[in-house]
Simulated assay, not measured.
Amino acid sequence: MKDVYITRIAKFLPNEPIDNEQMEEKLGIINGKNSKARRIVLRNNQIKTRYYAIDADGNITHNNAQLTKEAIELLCDDTFTTKDIELLSCGTSSPDQILPSHASMVHGFLKNGNLEVNSPSGACCSGMNALKYGFLAIKAGQVSNAVCTGSERTSTWMKSDIFETEVEHLKELEDNPILAFNKEFLRWMLSDGSGAVLLESEPKGIALKIEWMEGYSYAFEMETCMYAGGDKLENGHLKPWSEYPAEEWANKSLFAMKQDVKLLGENILGKGVDSLKMAMNKHHITTADIDYYLPHISSYYFKENLYEELKGQGVEIPWEKWFMNLSKVGNVGAASIFVMLEELVSSGQLKKGDKILLHVPESARFSYSYAYLTVC
């Protein structure tokens, strides 16, 4: 089995950063009224700026595949071009269409010759699953390099016109809020962007060796928490869009991303630390073996609670080991861990032998992914 190294890393965040007061201008006002939930959500998540693939005139500047292509091209130079890529593995929560696959569309924009493509589905863990596919392919000797990405273009999913038809069909507005908090919650959380890494079987320059990767799912015992393309029924079952008449797709805003906030708050941290302990125990590491802890969290609301959960379950990680950039770039879903790692590498503070733990939760139906890296 071959060793696997991250030898290059890049990110692409579109256009200018958007502050909290510009958000509703970009995404639109629903039913002619400013959101009451926006300030509550922003106060809790403490995100100050984020990025949208929308220009100053409200025009869409990039789709998801184009955002991904931009990050990949930033990996390349005269010594390694897009034509040298042997495997392309691209994860996202927000593909531009159901078919063709996201990686196929990215490949179409790259126009770089024949290669293998892989498109893991899912939410935030899809980026880590894309990374793991490349990791295993190189480890098994199938390829000598792979480009793995995480990306999101959710701003257009959050624009007001997605919800307007549903608002028009609500009958008792006093008893039924204009937009359920579960649906509006994510409007003020998500950001657009992409990140990419080059994996190779030999270290070059400042490289990060991937020691191991692990993934865990709790779907066997947990109902759906975050979803798009369906509606959650009172019994917890997720009814897919394909089982609704076409006229109901807009009436129920079936393609909007939604979050069961109560289920999220009750379970996301406990399951996360439980799975973290399993990964650490399997690979015989302790918190003393971690120099940098990069947890992907959707909101700073969870930061203090995550620390307390870690402490409560006996795996306390001191604050000085934490590295996050949520407040500056927003929640970029599958791209977040790539964007976070790129900033850490670019900071110049890493030294040979440092150990980095990546921790990525996915609330869709409670999945968790981990990677443990060594600075070479």
Rank of each mutant, 00 (worst) to 15 (best):
M1A: 07
K2L: 12
K2P: 08
D3W: 08
D3E: 09
I9H: 12
A10V: 00
N15F: 14
I18P: 00
L27A: 03
I30M: 05
S35F: 05
R38Y: 12
R39N: 15
R39K: 15
R43D: 09
N45I: 05
Y51E: 01
Y52P: 07
Y52T: 07
E73Y: 08
T82Y: 07
L87T: 08
L115S: 08
A123G: 07
C124I: 00
A137K: 00
N145W: 14
V147Y: 01
T156R: 00
E166C: 14
H169L: 11
E174K: 14
A180T: 06
F181Y: 15
F181S: 13
K183M: 11
E184S: 05
F185H: 02
R187N: 14
M189K: 03
L190D: 03
L190Y: 08
V197N: 05
M213E: 03
A219F: 01
A219I: 00
M222Y: 14
A228C: 07
L233G: 07
N235V: 14
P240F: 09
P240I: 01
E247Y: 10
A250I: 02
L254V: 06
D260W: 08
V261E: 02
L264N: 05
G270A: 09
G272Y: 02
M278C: 10
H284R: 13
I285R: 11
T286P: 04
D289S: 10
Y292K: 04
I297V: 06
Y300D: 00
E309L: 02
G312R: 12
G314W: 01
V315R: 03
E316T: 13
I317V: 14
W322P: 00
W322F: 05
M324I: 11
L326G: 00
A334F: 01
L341I: 10
H359Y: 01
P361S: 02
S363W: 00
R365D: 03
